[in-house]
């Protein structure tokens, strides 16, 4: 079993969409995949035509001392989504404190899940240090957009995240090309060698409540995601 997490360098870089699409692509490549929503917004399921913000989820269950693993939804055989559940803002902080207190919580859960899944993908939130640090992942990627703001944010981030994933790259933009060149130069080993291109199909996919690979399988973004999934498979196979 291989664990992978995605986290945006800031909000709105397309983390959840990418995670949903990546989960779908890995599943297409014959893998059993579990997607875990670690964000209090609780909206990952929307990509798989599930209800908006379901009440039940792993966070809800953890706080209520319920069995957390019963909350997962089966989208297709071998592709499951574990929602966050509805929490009040105060409860979110309480849970975060709990996660900091018990840093092994998700590690134990991952071991428990190892038999059922080949891949567990975590959609990490922006802040909430407990949520962010709790799952220990083999592959952790930070999603960035090629713009100057992300470039500024990247400066102090280097030490924490081993991998950067560029999303919404538009090769027609001079600035984006330049930024990518700088990153390729500067973070040669940290940059995932697959860039996700800006493609209208990615936005439309969510509006259709589908992951991009299912909504527009012939699109460039679908190919990019498949490339990313293949790259992850190769990397996951490598001894850590």
């Amino acid at each position: 079993m291989i664990t992978l997490s995605l986290r945006g360098v800031r909000g709105g870089v397309g983390t959840s969409s990418t995670l949903a699409a990546l989960g779908h692509a890995l599943h297409e490549l014959g893998q059993k995949v579990l997607l875990v929503d670690m964000c209090p917004e609780n909206s990952l399921g929307l990509h798989f035509n599930m209800d908006l913000a379901p009440r039940e989820g792993w966070a809800r269950a953890t706080l209520d001392q319920q069995p957390w693993h019963e909350q997962a939804w089966v989208v297709e055989p071998g592709l499951c989504v574990l929602p966050y559940g509805q929490l009040k803002p105060s409860e979110v902080f309480a849970l975060d404190a709990l996660l900091i207190e018990q840093p092994k919580l998700w590690t134990q859960r991952q071991i428990a899940l190892a038999k059922g899944f080949d891949w567990i993908l975590f959609d990490l939130p922006q802040r909430l240090p407990g949520h962010v640090s709790s799952p220990h992942c083999r592959i952790s990627m930070m999603v960035i957009n090629p713009d100057a703001a992300c470039h500024v944010l990247l400066q102090p981030q280097l030490a924490q995240t081993p991998l950067f994933l560029v999303n919404r790259f538009d090769a027609a933009s001079q600035l984006q090309r330049d930024l990518l060149l700088i990153w390729q130069q500067r973070y040669a080993h940290a940059l995932v060698p697959v860039n996700l291109h800006a493609d209208e199909a990615m936005g439309e996919a969510l509006a259709r409540s589908e992951p991009a690979g299912r909504y527009a399988p012939a699109s460039l973004i679908a190919l990019d995601i498949i490339s990313l999934a293949s790259w992850c498979l190769l990397r996951g196979r490598r001894p850590a």
Binding site: A172, D199, E200, A216, A218, S219, L220, I221
Partner: peptide
């Protein structure tokens, strides 16, 4: 390669 159309859709 890839093509990008005026409406923002891209295809390999």
């Amino acid at each position: 390669g890839a093509v990008k159309l005026a409406d923002g859709h891209s295809y390999p």
